[in-house]
Design a protein around this nucleic acid. Structure first.
Length: 536
RNA sequence: GCCCUCGUAGCUCAGUGGAUAGAGCACCGGCCUCCGGAGCCGGGUGCGCAGGUUCGAGUCCUGCCGGGGGCGCCA
């Protein structure tokens, strides 16, 4: 049983003796920020003092007294502080238990809470139109979606990664017109694509003078380029889902017919409308234009019908840019109209990235290609810069600064910690020092503050994985892995594992500590999709 | 005009009701007889503004100011 659980039970038990019937969620343990506040702390007296009809401090004192009279594993001291916090100081043994837990769980088992219970979740992300190369904003979402998939997989979900390929409709026509105009030696028409890649593709295109044919040709080539770029940052998709295939298979018509049978559709001004206001939208939406074409929404609804009702995902997470904000209410309303419980669809709006000085625009050819960023920083650093911050926060990128600071990228700090561990292992092997089984190792020798800091960091990982998964927040893993690396560097600096003054028993205990740190770093870096190198 | 979102250190960002608000970068000083100095240690300025709720507010509520996004028979 974890120290946290043990404490929570003891608190609930003693409260009952004092005649206070605590609701389950009232008893909460937290790790105090300041070390003098102990290893664990509870604010339960501040939560329950009214119910208990006592003053906060009095309830805290009473409860602390009762807890002192009982025996709780590892607890060395109990103190009341501040307005009524109860702080627990534990023997380092509780951290030695954690070390055994980490080693026993290993890279696959430690910090792998089963939150998803095998639920099938689809994460759809990037899904950039194949009308131009990926830019750094797409890369941000690519790293995010991929890391989220890794985290949710670890937390018990069955994850599928999907890229929705918008290979039909107006943008493909605009692309085709741009290609044909370039081939004729004319300038690109209004609303067309200006980038240099358009000129290149125009040269390669030797097909007929048809807009759609030219557009498809270009889109295919661009999609290949997109896949290649994503490979470079180690983002792989399970499925590349073609919008054209949905239209051609008749699913769009089927979806509209289904909605019509359910009575959610009406005709007005020669168009077919979805009564989305009945499902919380701010206005009704057109599904079929008066010229007979289906709208983007109609296609998107067919796509979501396919996700939920044909392929049967329990949950769907769409990672969209904040500029698609206006679509959220419509797609949610439409999905509900299809009979899907709307809570199963989750739309994560990622904030946009702006560049110092100007906005990115694919049409105008103003953007920083993701491939450039990867070339400058390398895959690992490029991924990590995008995983440092919450995706809910609008970010400004200064490419010049990133380039200048590439050697200062936090990724090296973390990778260096991992490489140092590998180095210790190499040296141990050279000197013929092998780890004895952990059962035969005296872990109680680990009492140095630096050693305990490493263990305290490892304690946090299960909670970090849980929070990151539930909040869809990979950056929490990034922050954690940096803090573990910091603890390890401190340990490495102050505590020699093998040395003249280090007794063999201590070397053994420290070797296990190092192994636990290695496991933690490998887990964290693995969740971020960043390589954990043996050497740098 | 209406809706959403964000405003924390010079810069990039953590801190989603707890105790004295943190980290990286940048800047200034220290630290290599032993496992890799891409490291360690020290140095400081800040919650946009004004009310409210609470034992307690950077965090929740209201208003204002400022940045971004959205309100198509575009995709």
């Amino acid at each position: 049983m974890s120290a946290e659980t043990t404490l929570a039970r003891a608190i609930t038990e003693q409260l009952a003796r004092l005649g206070v019937d605590a609701p389950a969620d009232a008893v909460q343990l937290s790790r105090p920020q300041r070390p003098e506040h102990g290893d664990w702390s509870t604010n339960v007296a501040l939560i329950l003092y009214k119910q208990a009809e006592r003053r906060p401090r009095d309830l805290a004192e009473e409860l602390a007294g009762a807890l002192r009279d009982s025996t709780i594993e590892h607890v060395e001291a109990i103190e009341v502080a501040g307005p009524g916090f109860i702080n627990f100081k534990l023997s380092p043994r509780w951290l030695h238990d954690i070390l055994r837990e980490v080693v026993a769980g290993g890279e696959t088992g430690y910090a792998s809470p089963d939150l998803g219970r095998g639920e099938r979740v689809q994460i759809e992300f990037v899904s950039a139109n194949p009308t131009g190369p990926l830019h750094v904003g797409n890369g941000w979402f690519a790293s995010y979606g991929d890391a989220l998939g890794r985290i949710m997989s670890r937390a018990g979900w069955k994850v599928q990664r999907e890229y929705y390929v918008n290979d039909t409709g107006g943008q493909i026509r605009a692309l085709g017109e741009s290609i044909l105009a370039r081939r004729r030696g004319e300038s690109v028409p209004e609303g067309g694509y200006q980038g240099a890649y358009v000129a290149e593709l125009a040269e390669q295109y030797d097909g007929p003078e048809e807009v759609v044919a030219a557009g498809r040709f270009a889109a295919d080539r661009i999609l290949d380029n997109i896949k290649e770029t994503l490979e470079q940052i180690h983002v792989r998709f399970d499925e590349w889902y073609s919008q054209a295939s949905i239209e051609e298979s008749g699913q769009v018509a089927d979806t509209i017919a289904f909605l019509r049978r359910q009575g959610h559709v009406y005709e007005e001004d020669g168009a077919v409308w979805l009564r989305s206001t009945a499902f919380g939208d701010t206005r009704d939406r057109v599904l079929v234009k008066s010229n007979g074409d289906a709208t983007y929404l109609a296609g998107d609804l067919a796509y979501h019908r396919d996700k939920f009702l044909v392929r049967g995902f329990d949950r769907v997470i769409n990672v969209w840019g904040a500029d698609h904000h206006g679509q959220v209410a419509s797609i949610k309303a439409g999905v509900e109209a299809l009979g899907v419980e709307p809570g199963r669809l989750e739309v994560r709006l990622g904030q946009l990235i702006s560049l110092v000085g100007h906005r990115m625009s694919k049409r105008a050819g103003i953007y920083v290609p993701l491939s450039d960023l990867i070339q400058i920083l390398g895959a690992d650093a490029a991924r990590l810069v995008t995983l440092l911050a919450s995706i809910d926060q609008a970010t400004t990128l200064d490419l010049d600064r990133l380039t200048a600071e590439s050697a200062e990228n936090p990724v090296y700090y973390v990778q260096y910690a991992h490489a140092r561990i590998a180095s210790i292992d190499r040296v141990a092997a050279e000197r013929g020092i092998a780890r004895v089984p952990i059962e035969a190792t005296d872990l109680s020798l680990l009492t140095h503050p630096r050693e305990l800091d490493v263990l305290r960091s490892l304690v946090e990982l299960p909670r970090v994985v849980t929070d990151a998964a539930l909040e869809r927040a990979p950056y929490k893993v990034t922050n954690w892995v940096r803090s573990l690396a910091a603890a390890f560097h401190g340990f490495y600096h102050d505590c020699y594992v093998m040395g003249e003054d280090v007794p063999p028993e201590l070397t053994q205990a420290r070797l296990w500590l190092v192994e636990a740190a290695r496991i933690g770093l490998a887990i964290g870096l693995g969740l971020l999709g960043v390589d954990a190198p043996e050497q740098m």
